[in-house]
């Protein structure tokens, strides 16, 4: 598990509830779906978010190349590294750290273009997910256009590992219970989330 902050990319566009960062395709630190990330907005203010989508746009050339019978390695490398097509990482804002205090409220204003995106360390994941009573779930559950079940499963899997690392195996159970409480009046969503969590399998 990571212990030092890793720079992932820089912001392309943002709003209060989410932001999109760009990074290179070949970047070794490319975050995965559900990763908790943070963006320092200004001195003493950071936005925290969860990666909910990673996508790459195509263009005419890529489409044409894709039909080619054989692609030399230099062409693949050139396309991945030097063509102006960043991997776009979409992030939903789930909280903030203001003057050192973590909360699951939204930051007062969004990060701006080219702000640097960092992957949270295990300690930061633990700190963020144990602040309050899992209030940040509300941001995820409100975002109906997102694959909520898959996102929660991916996030909970990573957070579970971080908590288990520090000897707190109960976190996952509590988080699942909280999700059930929040969603028990919404049968379809709850079952979708729980099915996804079940697919995680026991650790």
């Amino acid at each position: 598990m990571n212990t030092t902050p890793i720079e992932i990319g820089r912001l392309l566009r943002s709003s209060l509830t989410g932001f999109v960062a760009g990074c290179r395709v070949d970047q070794p630190s490319l975050p995965v779906f559900g990763t908790l990330v943070r963006v320092p907005i200004e001195d003493q203010l950071e936005a925290f978010g969860l990666v909910y989508d990673i996508h790459m746009d195509d263009d005419g050339l890529v489409r044409q190349l894709a039909t080619s019978h054989s692609l030399p390695p230099e062409v693949i490398a050139d396309n991945r590294n030097n063509r102006n097509m960043p991997v776009e990482i979409s992030i939903i804002t789930v909280g903030r750290r203001k003057t050192g205090i973590l909360s699951h409220l939204l930051p007062g204003h969004p990060p701006v273009s080219l702000d640097v995106l960092y992957r949270c360390t295990s300690q930061e994941v633990r700190d963020f997910t144990t602040t309050g009573r899992l209030g940040y779930f509300r941001h995820i559950l409100r975002a109906e256009e997102l694959p909520v079940g898959e996102l929660l499963a991916a996030h909970l899997e990573q957070a579970r590992a971080a908590h288990r690392e520090s000897g707190d195996p109960a976190w996952f159970k509590n988080a699942t219970r909280e999700l059930i409480t929040l969603l028990r009046d919404d049968y379809p969503t709850l079952m979708s989330v729980l099915n996804a969590l079940s697919d995680l399998g026991p650790e």
Partner: peptide, 14 residues
């Protein structure tokens, strides 16, 4: 449909 631990939690709450 669900893992037994999750199923138990679900039943406990719903």
């Amino acid at each position: 449909r669900l893992q037994s631990a999750i199923s138990d939690l679900l039943q406990g709450q719903t």
